[in-house]
């Protein structure tokens, strides 16, 4: 039997994928989204940047969906994220974000909040200042690409090199 919570979660994840992969450019979406499955702790999606050159920058996302709407005073989305989940997400050495999804059929909106260690406590509602739209998808793409542009694998001296690779 499918519970109401399952339905909201499934709908929220589908909405996240749809919102992130809108055809913003002439070649298609800015992002490629991969669901990591229910059993992956702390992270729901790995999101890869499209058309970022020879490298494939990525970021990690935890999605929280709700049909409970917004707080009256600050219009924050009523989703809670526990402290251990916030810390678990921020522990990855890659850009990490929490996305709140309003699954109400009249809304169907998503909001991005950084989870890169700025806050490590429980949050009972999420900011709606950065909705997932064309402008913010571009900002996010730039932010993540900027993060990885300073990254190099040159410092990795692997013990698993195939000396006879040809």
């Amino acid at each position: 039997m499918t519970s109401a919570k399952d339905v909201i979660g499934t709908r929220g994840e589908a909405l996240f994928e749809v919102l992130m992969t809108v055809f913003d450019t002439t070649t298609g979406p800015r992002f490629r989204v991969r669901h990591l499955g229910e059993k992956w702790p702390d992270v729901d999606f790995l999101v890869e940047l499209v058309d970022a050159g020879t490298e494939k920058p990525f970021f990690l996302v935890q999605v929280k969906a709700t049909n409970r709407g917004y707080t009256i005073r600050d219009k924050r989305l009523k989703v809670a994220v526990e402290a251990n989940k916030v810390r678990g997400l921020a522990a990855y050495p890659a850009p990490t974000y929490i996305v709140g999804i309003d699954v109400d059929p009249k809304a169907e909106r998503g909001y991005i909040v950084s989870a890169n260690g700025e806050h490590l406590t429980r949050v009972s509602s999420l900011s709606t200042r950065m909705p997932i739209n064309a402008t913010n998808r571009q900002l996010l793409w730039d932010e993540v690409r900027g993060f990885w542009s300073g990254f190099s694998k040159a410092g990795l001296a692997s013990r698993f090199i195939d000396a006879d690779w040809r």
Binding site: V7, T10, R11, A14, L15, E17, V18, T21, G28, P29, R32, P105, E108
Partner: peptide, 16 residues
């Protein structure tokens, strides 16, 4: 990717 996205769009539409 388009095929997969279309399924997600359909899921969103139906679960309204």
């Amino acid at each position: 990717m388009i095929g997969y996205r279309a399924e997600q769009l359909a899921l969103v539409l139906l679960t309204r």
